[in-house]
Design a protein around this nucleic acid. Structure first.
Length: 302
DNA sequence: ATGGTACCCTGAGAGC
DNA sequence: TGCTCTCAGGGTACCA
């Protein structure tokens, strides 16, 4: 589930439980995810209070006392869920079934990290599940967070005012790489993934195969089409966050509900379906770029 | 630098 | 039912 809107949804889902909570213990069910856990990963966190939850691009940040920060990445298949109750149990308490009650994940064998917390409403467990184990967690010193390798060269967020057409013009100038590839590059924009790049390009009427440099004028300024693309990127991210992200497969949010932006997909995973651009008679096609699927309409995206 | 590929890992779905 | 094949929201290492 992990593009920026999904990670932001996770952050918002975890914050009420985790912020202000005391970490009783961190249970590691295995020695590694994508990378081995650092020495003392769990023991260093035990007994510390969680101050706040943050996010940078697709990274979740858990800020604790004494400048500790857990940098967590969900990879392709990582998710968090919250269960009431103390250490032990294993079965967990019955959860308050909400309107969107979802059956408990069957893959408890992929519960790799469990944060045992003391909160105002009693003991809680925050459980990280990740079948493919492309995710990871690092414990770092928050004062040196800018030197965390993945953050050093990260581009601006596609939210708020961080992203501008002028900035993109400076990065696109002279580039022959296709737009799809360039927009997936976290060093240029941080947080976009396969879904939202496809959707932003469709909303902009731009072909994913177009060379990035063609959106920059000879004077090195942003063309009108690049101004539009910039706005559409911001729009699609904002829309997805407002919808609680996208839930592919049966992915559930921390509170057991589903994000619903997947119902708003215009091209992603819609191969063979009619293009949704008003008046367009095209059909969504799928191509492969840089080893990943790209969905677009060859009629109205040029 | 730029562009392409392989790979990390497990599960789901399609086709036979 | 079961096998094999392909594909999946990401990122990085390695190649020409």
């Amino acid at each position: 589930m992990p593009e920026l809107p999904e990670v932001e949804t996770v952050r918002r889902g975890l914050a009420p439980t985790m912020e202000g909570a005391l970490v009783d213990a961190v249970e590691l069910r295995r020695a590694d995810l994508r990378f081995p856990f650092s020495e003392g990963f769990g023991s260093d966190l035990a007994g510390r209070k969680i101050l706040s939850l943050g996010r940078r691009a697709k990274y979740l940040l858990i800020d604790l006392e004494e400048d500790r920060t857990v940098v967590a990445h969900l990879g392709m298949s990582g998710s968090f869920r919250i269960e009431a109750g103390g250490v032990s149990s294993g079965k967990g308490e019955p959860e308050t079934p909400g309107e969107f009650h979802h059956p408990r994940s069957k893959d408890e064998k992929h519960d790799h990290v469990i944060f045992h917390l003391q909160t105002e409403s009693g003991p809680q467990r925050v459980i990280y599940n990740d079948p493919r184990r492309f995710g990871f967690m690092h414990l770092i010193n928050r004062r040196h967070i800018d030197r965390y390798p993945a953050f050093e060269s990260l581009g601006p967020e596609p939210t708020g005012n961080s992203l501008s057409a002028d900035y993109l013009a400076s990065r696109f100038a002279g580039r022959k790489q296709p737009l799809k590839t360039v927009l997936l590059d976290q060093k240029i924009i941080a947080g976009l993934g396969n879904i939202y790049v496809c959707e932003a390009l469709w909303r902009s009427g731009l072909s994913p195969e177009r060379a990035a440099g063609t959106l920059v004028t000879k004077a090195g300024e942003a063309s009108d089409r690049l101004v539009l693309l910039t706005q559409k990127i911001r729009d699609v991210i904002a829309d997805a966050i407002a919808a609680g992200g996208s839930s592919l497969k049966d992915h559930i949010q921390t509170d057991g509900t589903l994000g619903y932006f997947q119902h708003s997909f215009s091209v992603y995973d819609r191969e063979g379906h009619a293009c949704r651009t008003p008046g367009c008679a095209g059909t969504v096609t799928r191509i492969t770029q840089a080893g990943r699927s790209t969905f677009y309409c060859a009629v109205c995206q040029t």
